[in-house]
Amino acid sequence: MIGQAPAGRRGKLAGWSTRDLLVVAAIGAALGVALIPVTYLGLTLMATLGPFLYALSTSLSRVPSVMTMYVVRRPGAAVLGALVAGLVQVPFTPTGWVILVAFALSGAACELPFLLTRYRRFGLPTLMISGAVAALLGLALQYVPFGYGNLALLVQLALILTAAAGGALITGGLAKLLADALAKTGVLSGYAVGQKRQEV
């Protein structure tokens, strides 16, 4: 296969060729730029309509991690995709490096379910679980600074359910839809997503 990393190299990023790295970075960057309005929308949503729509908009910003993992299928792909998507946003959004940390953390959260399947399952259920887990962990991190713990209990419960469902459907679902649509164009023929497409 073209672009395979040289054999025998160990340590960090073993098995990652420059091509994998740049494809992940490119998808992350393209989606990161597309997500800049979402970051702004998130800030205003949080201001005007409260945490519910904010929880949904953060699900949208996790699409790059799940999508890069689904395409490249290598350990670390979700974190890398999120990292680049966050880096691209640093100069263009007021929240700067804090959003980078947030992206990196949610990328790690998206990575977790794939790690637990030892990077063997990449079906829609795994993608959706990944989105939901990341959304719940993200919500947990927001509890303290945003003071959600002091909301009425029913509101809290609804918030948790919204986050989980939003994470599964928006993050997992949209990542798969986008990646499959992209695979149809043939640019991903070097990856598993694209090859399955050609067999059919």
């Binding site: 672009g3 393209a30 986008l178 992209l182």
Partner: peptide, 10 residues
């Protein structure tokens, strides 16, 4: 957009 980005990345 993604397709051109991926091609350019490769």
């Amino acid at each position: 957009l993604l397709a051109t980005a991926v091609r350019r990345a490769e």
